[in-house]
């Protein structure tokens, strides 16, 4: 996170099923996590590490960079894209996905990025339910307009964490949003 908690990066490294430790092990407790699942066609996950992923001594497989107030630059394995939130009046927004590659990609890498695009976007294996869950959340908030919603996963404060089972970045973003709007 930056000093104002506006911008952040969610950094993770793909692990082996069921071998997570510490707080990250909680991920294996969610109902959509299927430990024994095997793909019929493994080419969805034909992942080839790229030099530019290197970060000191680490090689993260996913980095989601959130830029205040409305854009995410994401590298998820070999798929690179942006998600842009474009407000469209009260209670609605457009969610614009842009996928890209690099000019010097080999034909194989070009095809790989396109194939891994199946995981993202409005029908993606990984991200289609993001939009669904946001819609559920909005519906729930609206049922009691006189109430306020609090995202409490991982506590009520804002801070760096070494795992992603937390809404700390959302709290940080809204903390800054509120400061700006109430100034």
């Amino acid at each position: 996170m930056d000093a104002h908690h506006r911008h952040a990066a969610m950094i993770s490294t793909r692990g082996s099923a069921g071998q997570a430790t510490g707080a990250a092990a909680q991920v294996t407790q969610v109902s959509s996590f299927k430990e024994s699942m095997q793909l019929n066609d493994p080419s969805f996950l034909d992942i080839v590490p790229e030099d530019w992923w290197q970060m000191d001594d680490k090689m993260p497989t996913a980095v989601m960079m959130t830029l205040f107030p409305s854009v995410i630059f994401q590298q998820q394995v070999n798929s690179v894209s942006t998600r842009h939130i474009q407000p469209d009046g009260h209670g609605a927004f457009d969610f614009v996905w842009t996928h890209f590659g690099f000019e010097d990609d080999t034909p194989e890498m070009h095809a790989r990025r396109l194939r891994q695009a199946n995981l993202f976007g409005p029908a993606g294996f990984v991200s289609a339910d993001d939009g669904e869950v946001i819609e559920f959340s909005q519906q729930a908030f609206e049922t009691k307009p006189e109430h306020r919603a609090v995202a409490e996963l991982g506590g009520r404060d804002v801070g760096e964490t070494d795992h992603m089972v937390t809404e700390t970045l959302i709290r940080g973003m809204y903390e800054y949003w509120r400061k700006v709007m109430e100034a």
Binding site: N40, D41, S43, R115, A117, N118, A123
Partner: peptide
């Protein structure tokens, strides 16, 4: 979506 086998 771009699925290129029955397995997919």
């Amino acid at each position: 979506l771009s699925l290129t086998s029955k397995g997919m």
